[in-house]
């Protein structure tokens, strides 16, 4: 039914992650986990899919011997999100 919608974004958790990244410069993995309240394993899988699509860039570093993952949305991700929202509007308000 919603074939035109970007399948990468048309998933609850991936859409949540991208929505968060649209409002911040960059976010840590823990911030994403606390905000989405999703399981860490699930978030990791979705982040990988978004990264593979080129929608986000992920930086993995070490801080005090602990892994520190942070991510930010890319230009491609912003364009995809805006396109997704435009298409959503057409579905919801077809006559507009």
């Amino acid at each position: 039914m919603f074939n035109d919608l970007d399948p990468i974004l048309h998933s609850q958790l991936r859409l949540s992650i991208v929505s968060i990244l649209m409002t911040v410069d960059e976010a840590s993995f823990s911030f994403i986990r606390d905000t989405t309240k999703a399981a860490a394993g699930n978030i990791s899988i979705q982040i990988k899919k978004l990264e593979e699509a080129g929608y986000i860039k992920v930086v993995k570093t070490f801080k005090n011997n602990y892994p520190n993952t942070s991510m930010a949305i890319t230009e491609k991700g912003i364009a995809a999100f805006e396109d997704y929202v435009d298409k959503l509007k057409k579905y919801i308000y077809p006559q507009a």
């Binding site: 919603f2 919608l5 399948p7 048309h10 998933s11 609850q12 958790l13 991936r14 859409l15 949540s16 929505s19 968060i20 649209m22 409002t23 911040v24 911030f31 905000t35 989405t36 309240k37 999703a38 399981a39 699930n42 979705q46 997704y84 929202v85 959503l88 579905y91 919801i92």
Partner: peptide
């Protein structure tokens, strides 16, 4: 949390809720 069969309305609500939640943290 991840499911693919969400309606456009649900998607909109999810975007609004997530942005609101992020803003609340700020």
């Amino acid at each position: 949390m991840d499911k693919s069969s969400i309606s456009p309305e649900e998607s909109f609500q999810l975007i609004a809720k997530t942005i609101q939640e992020t803003k609340k943290r700020f």
